[in-house]
Simulated scan of single mutants.
Amino acid sequence: MQPDTKNWTQVTEFVMVGFAEVHEAHFLFLTLFLTMYLFTLVENLAIILVVGLDHQLRRPMYFFLTHLSCLEIWYTSITVPKMLAGFIGMDEGKNISYAGCLSQLFLFTFLGATECFLLAAMAYDRYVAICLPLRYAALVSWGSCFRLAAACWLVGFLTPILPIYLMSRLVFCGPNIIDHFFCDASPLLALSCSDVTLKEMVDFLVSLAVLLASSMVIAVSYGNIVWTLLHIHSAAERRKAFSTCAAHLTVVSLFYGTLFFIYVRTKVTSSTSFNKVVSVFYSIVTPMLNPLIYSLRNKEVKGALGRVFSFKSWKGQ
C-alpha cells in the first residue's frame, strides 16, 4: 500500500547505527575491526604480488586466487572503512546519502555474487586437475581461464541490477535509521513505506539462483573428486590430492554457510543483532581467513613468499 503523499517527505539520507549496542567497548571493537581490515589488505596484496612475481605460480589455480584476492580487497573496503568511521564518532561514518546507500548495496551484491562464481570456477579447476589430468591443459587453457574469470565478473555485475532497480522504486518516508553497519537489503526493506512483497520475492529468487547455481558446480565437482580419490590405491597420493582441495572446501564452507543463512529468506524481520554478527563473518572474518587458509596450507605459496620477500636472506643477516 502506498503512503499518503500529503504526510511524508522523501528520505534523502540514511543514518547507520552500526554497533551502537557496544558503545562502552567501542574502542575495543574499533581496534579489532581495524586490525582485521589491515590484515586482510596485507594478506591479499601479498598473494597478488607473489603470484605476479613468481613464475612458478603462473598456473590457473593461482590465476583464480589472484582474482579472489582482488575481489576481497574491494569487498571489505566497501563497508569496513565507513564502519570504522562510525566507531570513531564521525558523522561521515554514520550518515550516507540515498544514492550512496544504493551504490554500496549494488557493489556489495556484485562482489558477493562474483565471489560465488569464482569459487565455483576454482572447484571446476580442481575437478579437472584431479579427475581429468591428461586433459587439463586442453580444458583449462589460459584462454579458457580468462573467459571463465570474465564470465564470473560479468554475471556478478548483472546479478544486482534488477534488485537495485526495484529498491530504487520503493518509497522511504521515515524513519531513516538503518540498524546495520552497511546498507544491506533487509534493514532497508524494513524502513520502506511501500509494499515490499515483490522486492522480497525477487531478492529471494536472485539469491537462491546465485547460491544454488554456484554451489551445484562446487558440489558436482567435489563429488567427482571424492569418487576419484576413493579409487586411488596409494594412500600418499590420495592425501596429496585431497590436500589441494581441503583449503578450497574450508573457504566454501565458511562463505556459503553464512550467505545461505542471511540471504535465502523472505522475511525482513529477524534478530538484527544476530544478523549483524553473521554479516561480520562473511564480510570481514572470511576475507581475512581466506588468504591464511590458502597460503598456510600450501607449500608452493609459502615457498614463493620466501623467494619473493627473501626471507632466507633476511635470516642470514
Rank of each mutant, 00 (worst) to 15 (best):
P175I: 06
L84H: 02
M83D: 04
L211A: 03
C116W: 15
Q2G: 13
F242P: 07
L57N: 03
A129L: 07
H231Q: 15
L296R: 05
E92Q: 15
C193P: 04
V17F: 01
L229R: 08
H67I: 06
S270M: 08
E21R: 07
S141N: 02
L34I: 11
H67W: 13
E92Y: 12
H55L: 07
C145Y: 00
L154I: 15
G89L: 14
Q2V: 04
H67M: 09
L107G: 10
G86V: 00
G86A: 10
E200F: 15
R307Q: 06
R239T: 14
V50I: 04
C245I: 00
T286L: 03
S253H: 11
V278T: 06
A190F: 06
L134M: 15
L34P: 11
F309Y: 13
Y165M: 04
V50T: 06
E43R: 07
N298T: 15
I262C: 11
F181V: 12
A149F: 01
M83F: 04
W74D: 03
V217F: 15
L32I: 12
F108A: 08
N7L: 12
L289K: 10
S69N: 05
S194V: 02
A113H: 04
K267I: 10
Y282P: 08
K267A: 13
M201L: 08
F182G: 00
A129T: 08
V280M: 13
L230I: 13
C101N: 10
A120Y: 02
W314Q: 11
L30R: 06
M167N: 15
I218M: 11
T250I: 02
V22T: 12
F242K: 13
A151R: 00
M16A: 11
D195S: 00
I130L: 10
P160H: 02
L191Q: 01
L154Y: 02
E115Y: 05
A241Y: 04
F172S: 06
L296P: 05
R307M: 09
T79D: 11
L28W: 13
R297S: 09
L166T: 07
L292Q: 09
V80W: 08
G100Y: 01
L57K: 10
A185K: 02
W314A: 13
T76Y: 01
S214N: 01
I225W: 09
N7I: 14
S69G: 08
L166A: 12
G112N: 12
M1F: 14
S283G: 02
W142I: 14
T286W: 03
T114F: 07
C183V: 02
A235W: 09
P81M: 12
A137L: 14
W227M: 13
L68D: 14
F146P: 04
L289V: 07
T197V: 05
D179F: 03
A219H: 10
F261K: 12
F182A: 04
I225R: 04
L189H: 07
E300H: 08
L198P: 12
F255Q: 10
T31W: 15
G52S: 15
L162A: 09
R307E: 07
Y136P: 08
S221E: 01
S313A: 15
H26I: 01
C70H: 09
L205I: 12
V140C: 07
L30N: 05
F281R: 00
C70W: 14
R169Q: 13
A150K: 02
D179Q: 10
V210W: 00
L154P: 06
L119G: 07
E115P: 15
K6R: 03
T266N: 15
S310W: 13
H233P: 08
